[in-house]
Design a binder for these strands. Structure first.
Lengths: 224, 224
DNA sequence: ACCCCGTGTCGCAGCTCTGTCGCAACGACC
DNA sequence: GGTCGTTGCGACAGAGCTGCGACACGGGGT
């Protein structure tokens, strides 16, 4: 359950987002002013802050800066359309991303996931893709409910790949992230590890469902 | 696959950014001097330029101005801490944003995304032209929703062309960027690759909608 | 001390891709 | 309208890439 704190003065927007976010599975709490928002932060830390730029009491930038002073909670700015200066200022103040109002829930959801992935590695330690479940805190993997035992290297490889679903990772990148040594020459090491991983999590390694080969570039995790 | 050109004279900073950026999925190329940077730009057009203000040969502002004269590639300035004058000057010279050194990779990543979003209008690595969608991180292409499978060379070619819609790219430039070896003599290699690409993404290769021939000069992407 | 598991390396096989060539078609310029 | 340079297009063979099995080494547990 991902907890999000929304700081927004317009009651209409609050209601709308409350509905949309809870439907997407988020735990949304709201504050109507900057002061109230900061106070809420002092108590229970959310996973992310959605921050409206225009607030009645404090400047959005100021709130953002104070949030960042005390915590490392990521912040997404909500700005009015087409205000480029605000974007620069917001990012300067430490915001991780910005979204233009009014935003479609799907867009907001995607941005939230992206920011959470970047900052913490994953939203809640549990990644589910089709019938594959990866628990990134317990370091366990199960397929169709059946537990799958992975070796350390296989686990690190799967974690790295699944951290960026849909994204192509080059062998170079994988070598850096999984093995942590920076080869320059090419190496069949990655290919081999992928093959071993596939043998354990794929039903048919010849037609991989999760770890896909992108010829000439690298590997990509996840069904498109 | 977002291509970035870093112009920075300090080898230490270069190495650091190279590592961090490649881990974030960027394709980073570097030049040590302003001259070298401009030369690299002549053949090899990146999505974005990261430009150090202090260079041994040319002034950062001057480089920025020249980049802007010839291309529409966005520029992010790297400046030393707390130099306000530089910021103003940089933005005046045509820089799209500035970042204070040393910058945390996450911050730099956020700025890059913001600038790219502003310049292309599209969210994270997604280029849309008519009914052609190019996902530059997943390295997938779809036409009217139907996925199109491209070979590595075709993909690199399409990425390079679509990086600068409306701009004519010479065969020489394409050879450098897509094939990375610098032929001097002319070669039918590019023609052939273009033809193969057209066969996959165009409805009627004889009247190409996306990759157009500019006789005597090269090829241009996109409906003007 | 032995055994077993994990991991890195090697080599082979199959397949796709890609560079080259030759000819046809087209357009520009005289 | 003719000629020449440029581009489109099909065919082909070699090169490059990836999958996959085999093997050896090393470390930890029994």
């Amino acid at each position: 359950m991902v907890a999000i704190l929304l700081i927004e003065d317009d009651p209409l927007v609050r209601r709308g987002l409350e509905l949309a976010m809870s439907r997407l599975g988020y735990d949304l709490r709201t504050s109507g002013t900057g002061q109230a928002g900061l106070a809420a932060l002092a108590g229970d830390l959310p996973d992310l802050v959605l921050l409206d730029l225009m607030l009645p009491d404090l400047d959005g930038f100021e709130v953002c800066r104070r949030v960042r002073d005390r915590t490392d909670v990521p912040v997404i700015m909500l700005t009015a359309r087409g205000d480029d200066v605000d974007v620069v200022g917001g990012l300067e103040a430490g915001a991780d991303d910005y979204v233009i109002k009014p935003a479609r829930p799907a867009v907001l959801d995607a941005r939230i996931r992206a920011v959470l992935r970047r900052s913490t590695g994953d939203p809640d330690g549990l990644r589910t893709h089709r019938d594959l479940r990866i628990d990134t805190t317990a370091l366990t993997v199960s397929r169709r409910g059946e537990p799958v035992t992975l070796t350390p290297t296989e686990m690190r490889l799967l974690l790295t790949l699944s951290r960026h679903p849909g994204r192509v990772l080059s062998r170079q990148q994988l070598l850096q992230d999984v093995w942590e040594h920076d080869y320059l020459g090419d190496s069949r090491l990655v290919d081999n590890a992928v093959q071993r991983l596939r043998a354990k999590i794929e039903t048919d390694p010849a037609a991989p469902e999760f770890v896909q080969t992108v010829r000439g570039f690298g590997y990509r995790f996840g069904p498109v």
